[in-house]
């Protein structure tokens, strides 16, 4: 297990020693400051708009960091040939995958947590109301989303090139986020195959609880949150097993 954490720690060091992360951080800070000071004259319910844009930015920036990072960790290792020295150590290939996954996930979670924290500060400051449970649920759902997205991207990167991985990951994410709910009926018209495709696709739409926070709706029941976490864990596990299968077969 120590080896897995060492690989993960190495990845964290990489992101914190690169400039990309800080550029995005600065950009988001500027946008949030702008939102805080924006005066939407004539628009009622200005907080809702602010929260919608703010939350959208938090998710978008987290995606911008996590997807390319998860897509490149395995590909870079092979392309730069650092994988040779790494796999010559007493490690299994699956340990390398898990280490890379944990490192990518940590980076994704860290950036999301930081962006979300900034958003909470900004929105509470502007609105003066703190609905703790709703913020918590949106935050946990966001972490689950990143868990699935990171595992899926890493799995794709074992089979595809960098650009294909990024394109596919974003395509699947946006398609499922926007149209995932409607897929159920259309895919169920095709008997076995449609159902198989429906269950094989990652249902990112499950994790989108943002509207509850924006419109201050009721929080979702605890069992739904538990089911979300369980789904995210199971789906990520399946993705990692797929990645293991592909990586074990590969000649380096």
């Amino acid at each position: 297990m120590k080896a897995v954490f060492l690989i993960a720690a190495n990845l964290m060091r990489e992101i914190f020693r690169k400039k990309d992360f800080y550029v995005l951080l600065l950009l988001l800070l500027l946008l949030l400051v702008y939102l805080l000071n924006a005066a939407f004259f004539g628009i009622r319910d200005v907080f809702r708009y602010m929260k919608e844009i703010g939350l959208g930015l938090v998710f978008l920036f987290s995606l911008l960091i996590s997807v390319p990072f998860a897509a490149k960790v395995m590909i870079d290792e092979a392309a730069s040939k650092t994988i040779y020295a790494l796999l010559a150590k007493p490690l299994s290939r699956f340990q390398v995958i898990i280490g890379k996954f944990l490192g990518s996930l940590f980076v994704a979670w860290c950036s999301f947590s930081f962006f979300f924290f900034l958003f909470v500060l900004a929105s509470v400051y502007k609105q003066g109301v703190f609905t703790g449970i709703l913020y918590f649920q949106v935050y946990v759902a966001g972490l689950c989303l990143l868990l699935v997205l990171t595992a899926m991207t890493l799995c794709l990167s074992v089979y595809c090139t960098f650009s294909t991985t990024i394109t596919l990951a974003y395509m699947i994410y946006f398609l499922m986020s926007w149209f995932g709910g409607g897929l159920h009926e259309s895919l169920y018209k095709i008997p076995l195959l449609g159902q198989a495709v429906y269950y094989a696709l990652p249902h990112f739409e499950f994790f989108d609880l943002r509207h509850r926070l924006i419109h201050l709706w009721e929080p979702v029941p605890a069992w739904v949150m538990l089911a979300l976490v369980a789904y995210a864990c199971l789906y990520s596990g399946a993705m990692l097993l797929c990645a293991r299968y592909g990586f074990n077969k590969r000649w380096l």
């Binding site: 190495n10 990489e14 730069s80 010559a88 150590k89 490690l91 299994s92």
Partner: peptide, 19 residues
């Protein structure tokens, strides 16, 4: 993997993490 506990390896192309 356990046999690699006793092996040292220097690859032909020396590439390591630049950071």
């Amino acid at each position: 993997p356990r046999v690699r506990q006793r092996i040292g390896y220097m690859p032909e192309i020396a590439q390591y993490y630049w950071y």
